[in-house]
Design a protein around this nucleic acid. Structure first.
Length: 597
DNA sequence: CATGTCACG
DNA sequence: ACGTACGTGACATGA
């Protein structure tokens, strides 16, 4: 009977040009998860749960003596059989562990929800079902967790009755149909979905599974030396405070500094407590040695607790490498995020921090190659605004901060002082974030009037930029969203016309920043897709893409092909999207990530 | 589980 | 008179 149902479904799947499927696993972490079963749906309302025969299967032996995976493999690997799923990257990663190379990945409901701008929880099938299908999944549908009858997915038999096991595929299919009917009519969104987000899934899965090689001995030694430094700093701090206290507790530091030692309160936290953050302590450190010791302790403790202690623990026992997860549906702008561990915030700004990067190494006969987009966000605003001055500065390959300084301070390019360049750099950064004179003044340590004056000069010289910023604000207010070049939208639900001035201003800044940050994300994602296609053609592959850090890609490249590969990578990145300004990529090579930077 | 802090682009 | 540059994830503390 079971076998009959199974072979019947197998036949139907074989004929289907498109179907949805979900996986049941024993762990949400793909690297440690065992496959228990599949659910499939070809038509709305019809679904099946297929248990997988594996060694976790004990008592009931559904589909005994049939290797379900082996039978499904050709279907899952068939490019012509289109698949619908939710968080398909997870499925690819799990299936890869079983030797299945998932192809024909067509629609991911999580990504559909993301590009449609639904509020968060793009992966929450219950919420989406409620929103799009007006369908509440009640507990009776959940086959597991039913009181005494605790069945896990490896114990359920093949099932066609409505149950939590089968209906996830059904709901996924119906969710897709509902979201796609909306999505396909909006050209921009359809474009970003099909040209960027969907093809990127396979690429990210590849990068995650490839992983990064870490020299844990380097990190271990670094941890040891940090322990000593921290001990010494703690003793110093206790002496200056007159008593021992927990240097990791902002609350206790606050008591010592402000209650006991009566230091001036420079800033308060959102909840009204006197702040002890870096900005405040740096000012206090000019007069009070204790503040300096705390600062030093904090930065060293951060290195140890977040990086040197933790990274070695994240090395996968089998691959011997670190496998992060990239997330496509977290940010408002379209950037990726990385977690477990986060490889997008590895220290670089201090020499002590860079020692952590020295532990990111390449295997024997390979080198680390990094490729960075240079000034990508400013190039994007040049393109979006079509400001002639900015376009010319990039066309002439000028140092952009120097060029800006020359305009603002009205001096020849070759007479720009270091101080002037520094100011111009702050203005350029502020430009990207929608700065106010107040914040620019604070950043540069000048008066608000002076800052106002600088900004006025900037917008006088680059008037196209001002026009563009005004335009972005208007667009956001008129449409309730702002778009990137790739077609992604940042929705500003109501806040953009909020009567609360602070909220409104904040939404305006987001509207100014999103097209730049988001277009930069579009560009590097397109590049990653192109680079992956190139790497996939190699046999054997001598280049591996191993990390993405917003405007940078990191590779392991075999020594024998280093120079041709570098030029190919550069070319693919610089041409990933066509803009009025040319894109510039800086490539560096080293034996570790620090040296390649 | 919220808060404060700090690592990155 | 007010607060005030965009976007993230991880950690330790302490209720």
């Amino acid at each position: 009977m079971d076998k009959h149902i199974f072979f019947d479904w197998l036949q139907q799947l074989n004929k289907a040009t498109i179907f949805s499927f979900t996986l049941k696993t024993n762990d949400l972490n793909a690297w440690h998860s065992k496959l228990l079963g599949f659910s499939f749906a070809i038509l709305p309302g019809e679904a099946v749960y297929l248990p997988v025969l594996n060694d976790s299967l004990k008592k009931p032996k559904p589909l005994d003596h049939i290797d379900v995976l082996e039978k499904l493999k050709p279907i899952l690997e068939n490019e012509k059989a289109l698949k619908i799923g939710t968080n398909i990257k997870f499925n690819i990663n799990v299936l890869a562990h079983y030797g299945i190379n998932l192809r024909g990945i067509a629609y991911d409901t999580m990504l559909e929800s993301y590009v449609l701008g639904d509020d968060k929880s793009h992966n929450d099938i219950n919420k989406l079902a409620n929103q799009y299908l007006h369908h509440k999944i009640d507990d009776s549908e959940k086959i597991i967790n039913q009181g005494h009858n605790k069945l896990t997915f490896n114990q359920i038999n093949i099932a066609q009755t409505p149950s939590y096991g089968t209906n996830t595929a059904d709901i996924t299919l119906r969710l897709h149909l509902a979201m796609w009917s909306k999505l396909q009519n909006i050209g921009e969104i359809r474009k970003v979905f099909s040209e960027i987000d969907m093809p990127l899934v396979t690429v990210l899965s590849y990068i995650e599974r490839t992983g990064v090689l870490i020299d844990s001995a380097i990190l271990w030694m670094h941890s040891q030396s940090l322990t000593e430094t921290l001990n010494t700093l703690a003793i110093k701090a206790y002496k200056l405070a007159g008593e021992p206290f927990n240097l990791s507790s902002p609350q206790q530091i606050q008591k010592i500094l402000y209650d006991k030692q009566k230091l001036p309160v420079i800033k308060k936290t959102p909840r009204g407590a006197p702040s002890t953050n870096e900005e405040v302590l740096t000012q206090l450190a000019l007069h009070y040695p204790l503040a300096k010791v705390i600062l030093e302790y904090r930065s060293q403790a951060k290195l140890k607790t977040t990086y040197t202690d933790k990274l070695p623990l994240m090395i996968h026992p089998i691959s011997g490498r670190i496998h992060t997860s990239y997330h496509q549906t977290v940010t408002t702008t379209g950037r990726l995020t990385s977690s477990n561990p986060n490889l997008q915030n590895i220290p670089i700004r201090t020499s002590e921090g860079r020692r952590v990067r020295q532990a990111f190494i390449a295997p024997k006969n390979y080198l680390i190659v990094t490729a960075d987009y240079s000034q990508i966000e400013l190039r994007i605003i040049a393109h979006l605004s079509q400001d002639l001055g900015l376009l010319a500065a990039f066309a002439e390959e000028k140092d952009i901060h120097c060029a800006t300084a020359a305009e603002i301070f009205n001096v020849p390019l070759n007479q720009v002082s270091r101080e002037q360049r520094r100011s111009a750099k702050a203005i350029n950064f502020g430009l990207i974030y929608g700065m106010s004179p107040f914040s620019l003044a604070k950043r540069l340590g000048i008066t608000q009037n002076e800052a106002q004056h600088y900004m006025h000069r900037y917008f006088q010289r680059y008037s196209g930029v001002l026009t563009y910023i005004k335009h972005a604000r208007q667009q956001a207010a008129k449409n309730g969203y702002i778009s990137t070049l790739g077609g992604r939208r940042l929705y500003l639900p109501k806040v953009i016309s909020s009567s609360n001035r602070m909220h409104r201003k904040s939404a305006e800044r987001a509207a100014i920043n999103a097209p730049m940050q988001g277009t930069a994300a579009d560009i590097i994602k397109r590049a990653m897709i192109d680079i992956y296609d190139w790497i996939a053609q190699q046999n054997p592959p001598l280049v591996r893409m191993i990390m993405q850090v917003h405007d940078e890609l990191v590779f392991e490249v075999h020594e024998s092909v280093i120079h041709v590969s570098v030029e190919k990578i550069r070319k693919l990145m610089e041409n990933s999207m066509s803009l009025t300004v040319s894109l510039k990529v800086e490539v560096k090579i080293g034996i570790n990530w620090d040296e390649a930077h």
